[in-house]
Nucleic acid binder design. Structure first.
Length: 203
DNA sequence: ACCGGGATGTTCT
DNA sequence: GAACATCCCGGTG
């Protein structure tokens, strides 16, 4: 058995702000999906119409619809023909900003995660990467648009368990994109072993 | 440890 | 037809 996760859900107003404000504050919050949970240790901001790398840059499409919806919901997309990735939607309805969840520190439901990710050799590999964490938590298309503030049958939410975000988070360029690569819109918990890439050495 | 290539299919041009 | 907010495996040091 894994310990129960306790904490309070964040209000919708928390998400109704610019991703550049919200993203670093998401660090150390807890993502819960059913009985599986992990602490958020790495995120990336995608800033809608201002951001050539955003799926919403060229306007609404069938795929990015939930990005244009209310804040505090999930935007889940399919990529490379086999992977799901999950984002937290920010800003009021009509403005498409979202924060990609890039890595979690596993907290609960470890047995289910291991079963869902047979390729993970160690527990630190379960949720280190945007597609890996979705695999570990069982997040797929059916979670697109899921409400984090008032969760329904999907039992998905983000909790504040009292852990503050890091006072001095790591920051750097986003990973795996071609356009707007220079914008330093990735944040992480320094030296966490579950990061999608090892924490770069800082002087 | 690090690197290179293949997998696989939706989305948009 | 190309691009893709990735991952895994098998090579070499």
């Amino acid at each position: 058995m894994t310990p129960a996760v306790r904490g309070r859900r964040l209000p919708r107003s928390f998400y109704a702000r610019d991703v550049l404000e919200v993203a670093p504050e998401l660090l150390n919050k807890v993502l819960v999906c059913g009985n599986r949970a992990g602490r958020i240790v790495e995120v990336e901001a995608y800033r809608g119409g201002e951001d050539p790398a955003s799926h919403a840059y060229k306007g609404p499409t069938a795929r990015n619809a939930s990005m244009f919806g209310p804040p505090g919901r999930l935007y889940v997309y399919f990529t490379y023909g086999m992977h799901w990735c999950a984002n937290v939607v920010c800003m009021p309805e009509g403005t498409a900003q979202a924060i990609l969840l890039r890595a979690l520190s596993p907290l609960a439901g470890l047995e289910e995660m291991r079963a869902a990710r047979p390729a993970a050799r160690r527990d630190r590999d379960l949720c280190r990467g945007p597609a890996r964490l979705c695999q570990a938590l069982g997040i797929d298309r059916s979670y697109d648009g899921a409400d984090l503030v008032r969760p329904g049958g999907h039992r998905l939410s983000i909790l504040d368990d009292g852990a503050d975000p890091p006072a001095a988070p790591g920051t750097g360029e986003r990973i795996g994109i071609r356009l707007a690569q220079d914008r330093p819109w990735r944040w992480w918990v320094p030296e966490d072993p579950n990061l999608s890439r090892a924490d770069p050495i800082r002087s």
